[in-house]
Design a protein around this nucleic acid. Structure first.
Lengths: 246, 246
DNA sequence: ATAAACGATAACGTAACGTGAGAGTCAAGC
DNA sequence: GCTTGACTCTCACGTTACGTTATCGTTTAT
């Protein structure tokens, strides 16, 4: 058992940070003494390590909580994902160093430089945000399990499920004029939510990242655009709102 | 000449960010049209690059402004400093990767791991903050110029200046009981401020980083602790307050 | 000429803590 | 047993660097 100060010193965070993480239920102390003091054990230590990794990668604390509290969370897979992201970040910093060297040579008049090159490493993969990588982690995991479940159905059942899915998306297209937050749209999303249970147990964070993928992943976009050109962004907005009210 | 949107796209920042940087006079547009539009030129582009570098290193925008607006600022020296800091950061990330690999092996039971090692790369050089590196940049520059000025004095003058310096620090020790923000202490610091002009023109940011160095750099600490064991932290607090009221 | 795209200001919202204030708790030494 | 200093707690307001509408004028393309 460790006190706040011991944890703070070990991990290099402030006591206030631990208080805050407790307040937002991101990292609750293992036990609380009758004096009101917070005490942490080794498991809490590992959880804090995970938190710091995700924080380092720029994720918001709410997202981190969602990831760590997810029953599907797998520590080792997460660590391996961290590895990839950090490697990517190292590459980015090396790009910055290249930019620096180039800028220096440019200032010395040894080499011309384009306006875009001035910001090499800053803007490049701006939208390829690290969040995506975290979502990918879900994705792989989710897809793997979903295939198992799907294969357990009979051919007849499979056809029935597919038909139900198509109907839902068609209904959503019909509901588009009302807007993504309309009661009608949200009601259909409740059906969609139920429908997903044929594939896996849909956790809130999964729904959310699914909504994003619907408007980002090329395969999904192609699929939904076939139904209506504006369906992908509509779906993302609608699902986001649906998750908020969950 | 570029519009806000063009700059934003080039650098990968939001328009709001450009508005904000204008608002806090960190990056003012080169000219403003009669329609009120902001227009930027290539010099502004380079300034923005510098801002993004310092921001990447975790400096606050106020500090960045102080650095860039300092007449002593030298672009190439700054870029070389960035290089060193970014290299350091790459090292830190590589430490994180080591920690990840070690953690994975630990979880698999292949290797024991201490509590400190769990946070390897997070806490280690926490206090060796990047600010210090920026301060170092000042330091080198400052010391270089100061030596020139110092050598221009006669031996007699040098002795007199030294005596004045000693007197000031002794007075500060005497003022310690009143606290770092007391009127007495602050008055002596005004003398100290004047005194520094024998060495170089003391800019606010320089005073501030000087105050930090007094409580961080081993040579300074040793010097001041000889006068009084609590003098270094007292000096930092007092100088910080002095700069705030400047 | 009219919409779409772009620009401006203004003002409120936010995330992740920092920073006291005021008060209770614990361990060590006298 | 008592003090003292280090440690802890809970408010509660402050801060930084923007995001996010909302409302409005401007420029550009059709």
């Amino acid at each position: 058992m460790y006190t706040v100060k011991q944890i703070a010193n070990l991990a290099g965070v402030s006591i206030r940070t631990l208080h805050y993480y407790d307040e937002i239920t991101l990292l609750a102390p293992t036990t609380i003494g009758e004096n009101g003091y917070r005490y942490y054990d080794d498991a809490a230590l590992f959880r804090l390590q995970q938190i710091l990794f995700y924080r380092e990668l720029g994720l918001e604390l709410r997202q981190i909580r969602g990831i760590l509290d997810n029953p599907e969370f797998e520590l080792i897979a997460a660590l391996q994902s961290h590895r990839r992201v950090i490697s990517g970040r190292i590459n980015r910093l090396q790009t910055l160093i290249t930019t620096i060297d180039r800028t220096i040579r440019h200032i010395k008049g040894e080499e011309p430089m384009s306006n875009k090159q001035i910001f090499g490493g800053f803007n490049e993969e701006q939208e390829k945000r690290y969040t995506e990588e975290a979502a990918k982690l879900y994705g792989e995991e989710r897809v793997r399990k979903s295939v198992n479940l799907w294969n357990s159905y009979t051919a007849e059942k499979k056809a029935q499920i597919k038909a139900e899915g198509s109907a839902i998306y068609l209904d959503l297209v019909a509901a588009m004029p009302g807007g993504p937050t309309s009661a009608e749209t949200q009601a259909i999303l409740a059906r969609w939510h139920q429908h997903l249970r044929y594939f896996y147990e849909p956790h809130v964070e999964i729904l959310r990242s699914l909504g994003q993928m619907y408007n980002q992943s090329p395969e999904f976009i192609a699929n939904f655009e076939a139904l209506h050109p504006d369906l992908p962004p509509f779906l993302e907005a609608a699902i986001s709102h649906y998750c908020d009210t969950l």
